[in-house]
Every structure is written in C-alpha cells, then in structure tokens.
Design a protein around this nucleic acid. Sequence first.
DNA 1: CTAATTGCAAATTGTTTGCAGTTTA
DNA 2: TAAACTGCAAACAATTTGCAATTAG
Lengths: 144, 144
Amino acid sequence: MDAEKLLKKQQLKVTSQRKAIIRVLQNTDTVLSAHDIFSEVIKTLPGINFSTVYRNLDVLLSKGIVCRITPESGGVLYELRREDGHHHHVICKNCGASIPLEYCPMEDIQAKLMEKGFTPTEHRFEIYGYCEKCNKGGELNEPF
Amino acid sequence: MDAEKLLKKQQLKVTSQRKAIIRVLQNTDTVLSAHDIFSEVIKTLPGINFSTVYRNLDVLLSKGIVCRITPESGGVLYELRREDGHHHHVICKNCGASIPLEYCPMEDIQAKLMEKGFTPTEHRFEIYGYCEKCNKGGELNEPF
DNA sequence: CTAATTGCAAATTGTTTGCAGTTTA
DNA sequence: TAAACTGCAAACAATTTGCAATTAG
C-alpha cells in the first residue's frame, strides 16, 4: 500500500513530511533509528525538522503504521509494521536486516501464566545475530 | 551470596558504594531504574553521586552481576541476575514485580533459524502484564 | 604505593515542548 | 476556515565525561 493510502486509512492528514517518512521505511528491509530516518528524509525534503520526524513517528506508532524495537544495547529503532498479523523479529546486528518470524512463543505458555494468576498484556520476543549475508563475507559493523 | 563475595568473585574492588547498590537490588523482587536505585542507596550513603551509580551499574552489567531490561515503553530497568542459568522475565506493569521464567523459546526455533543461514547470538523474551496481587484489588500505577 | 574508584561539575545525547505561521481537508 | 500540522528555538531528562582527590588491594 502506498504512503498516501496508509495515512488516509488512519484518518491522518497527508503531508509531504509524512509521505517521505513512510517511503523511507518502505524502501528498506532494515530497522532504522530516528536519526537514520531523518537523514534519509532530508535528502528529498531539505526543510524538514527533527521534531517533525519524532512527532510523526509517534503518531505512526500510535496508529499502528510503524513498530518500535528497543535492542538491549539501547537505542530505539523503527520499521514499517507488516499488515499480516502478529509477528516477531529476527534482526541482523551487522546490517540491520529485519526478518519477520511467524512463530510466537506465547501460545506455549499463556495457559501456564494464567494458572499462576498472571495476566499477560504484552510481550516481546526478538532475536539478534547475523544474517546469511553477513555471516559469510567480510567485516562486521556492529552498529548495535 | 552477599554483596562482598559477589564483587570479589568478579575481581572487583569492594567499595561501600558497590555494596550498597547490590544490597538494594538484593532487597527487592522488582525491577528498578537507575533513579530508583540512586534514591534508595542515598539513604544509607548520603554522599553518593549519580554518576557512581551509573558507572557501577555498567561494570556490574559487564560482569554479569546485574541484568538490564528495556520495556517497549522506554526507560531502562535493572535487576540482580539470578545465578541459576538462563531465564526470561515476567514483569508486572503495576508493581514492577519480576518473576523468573524457566521456559525459553529459542530451543524451539534455533534449528529453523540456522537452516535459513541466520546465526543467533542473543535474544530476548519478556512478558508484561499484571501479577496475581495487582490483578485483583485496587488502583493501578502503570509506572511503565 | 599504584591503579581503581569516587564526587563534582560540566558536557553531551536523544527527545520533547510552546508557540506562531502554514497547510490540509 | 477550523483543526491539524510544521519549523524553530528553547527546554528537558537521562546518561556520560574529564579531572583532581580518595581509597582498596
């Protein structure tokens, strides 16, 4: 779905800034920091401000258009949320590649938790490591 | 194990600040922010500085004495690392209670990832919700 | 005694806010 | 044209740093 449609669907005003941010996220299969996004967007929209990027990532997040990833090492990363249901991430520590994972561990333990009187509302499951490409050839970056 | 032994075992100098920080973590079963820890430690060690707390949390982390939790909602939380092997956390969003979980989802998919050429190095699995106590009675805090 | 550690103050980073002008629906 | 959105500059919170004095081994 293109940027404009995504925005309209969520009843958000269609601005050039929002379209640009979404396009950046659409044109990559890696997770990006707010800074990454800003420095990409500014190429096509030289006037844009950092606060606009932050504000829009927040609204996109609240509307479920993007999702947020917070690696143990710190920092906050974003990616476009896939429309096809709940899933988790496998993320390459070298190139940032984000691979969706269908498997969800909650199914296996939901019942057990409820038994103990704990009511789960959210969970996160993320896997970090090296993707096929980065495994093999060459130098590693370790950006996070 | 008492604070002093923990430090000696990791070949760290035993200072009153480090002992105090570890004791705070030992005397709770909830996850704590750096700020929480600081305001607790300062009660017994009035002169301690925030930077000392941060620096020491870093060394304790690197030595595996504490572990770090970063909820999706932001912020960084710490708790004493349990000695008994790998485990994950179930955390109450109301009172911060941290319940260890023996179950680890990696076993179930490790092989599948390797097949795809992905080499996992780390992972995280955290569950958030409400513990038995908070489920029932009373007002909720939602501190994170 | 020497290297590690601490307190202090200042710097830095990442993010958020108020406001006045601009744009979208 | 009203409400939403943006740029700007300033504020902010959390964390880090350099340095001189202190302390543990």
